[in-house]
């Protein structure tokens, strides 16, 4: 007996560029929101302003990326619709950025790992075949270069500071390290975007990133955690699989927009 030969309909091809832009935009939107939680709680007034300033930079970058994503999708969604009306499973940010802030050491260590990633990625994206994306990357790169100056400087101060600051920032690195392979994991979207010369080879970026990170970690007298075995095919935030923390973050971030649909301010 032969099984009826049913040819399954090909799954609808995801719009790879739309996916890529959501990944880029959501990283910055979610991290920007996390950083904004420091507003009013910084260790000193000046640092409070610096963190809020970086949060605003990230949210501004997210605005540009998600606006372009909405245009690429062509379903009439603008950046606000994407930011405020999607559910957690529709977000494409890496999981590192949605983790709670922890202490100042954890916040700084995460910023540092992300800022270096952002600099190498945006630098590569300035050569993207997609002109608008290249232009956004060029603008965001200037900001990212400042961000890494801020977080890199703090890594040196905390790592090579007091016994307690060293212990805390080392603990943060140890906790965060297992979330870093996700930044460079590739799937069909990345391959398609690379083929089209829209996005770079993440493997090359991974090497650049690690060299830059290692340099600062060494000078900060910190220890790079042992390599995490990369798990190819592992599904994470880029595919909509998030930690429990993203839902709580979105509940707070989205409540005003959802309670007052279409409100203008």
């Amino acid at each position: 007996m032969t099984a009826p030969s049913v040819v399954p309909a090909p799954p609808e091809a995801p719009n790879a560029l739309f996916e890529l832009l959501q990944r880029l935009g959501d990283d910055r939107l979610v991290l920007g929101h996390r950083l904004s939680e420091w507003c009013g709680h910084g260790p000193i007034l000046e640092e409070d302003i610096a963190l809020a300033n970086i949060a605003l930079d990230l949210i501004g970058e997210a605005t540009m990326l998600l606006r372009l994503a909405g245009q690429v999708e062509g379903q009439g969604r603008d950046e606000d619709a994407l930011a405020y009306l999607r559910e957690a499973v529709d977000f494409r940010n890496c999981r590192m950025v949605e983790l709670p802030n922890g202490d100042f050491g954890f916040t700084i260590a995460r910023q540092f790992l992300f800022d270096v990633y952002s600099v190498v990625l945006l630098d590569a994206l300035t050569h993207s075949a997609h002109e608008e994306l290249a232009a956004i990357a060029a603008k965001a790169l200037k900001e990212a270069r400042y961000h890494v100056r801020h977080s890199g400087d703090w890594m040196l101060k905390l790592g090579d500071g007091t016994e307690e600051s060293h212990r805390r920032v080392q603990r943060a690195l140890d906790e965060l390290w297992r979330f870093t392979p996700e930044l460079f994991a590739t799937d069909d979207i990345d391959h398609a975007m690379r083929q089209a010369n829209i996005a770079p080879d993440l493997g090359v970026l991974h090497e650049q990133w690690e060299a830059l990170v290692r340099d600062v970690i060494d000078r900060a007298t910190l220890t790079l955690p042992h390599d995490v075995p990369s798990a190819p095919g592992v599904r994470g935030g880029r595919q909509g699989f998030h930690t429990e923390h993203l839902g709580h973050l979105l509940a707070e971030m989205q409540i005003v927009a959802r309670s007052h649909p279409g409100a203008k301010w």
């Binding site: 000193i44 000046e46 640092e47 400042y146 100056r149 101060k157």
Partner: peptide, 17 residues
Amino acid sequence: SLHAADAEQALQNARDV
């Protein structure tokens, strides 16, 4: 005026403030 741990940080804080 502002507070900062060293000159580099003072420049960064000045930039932000």
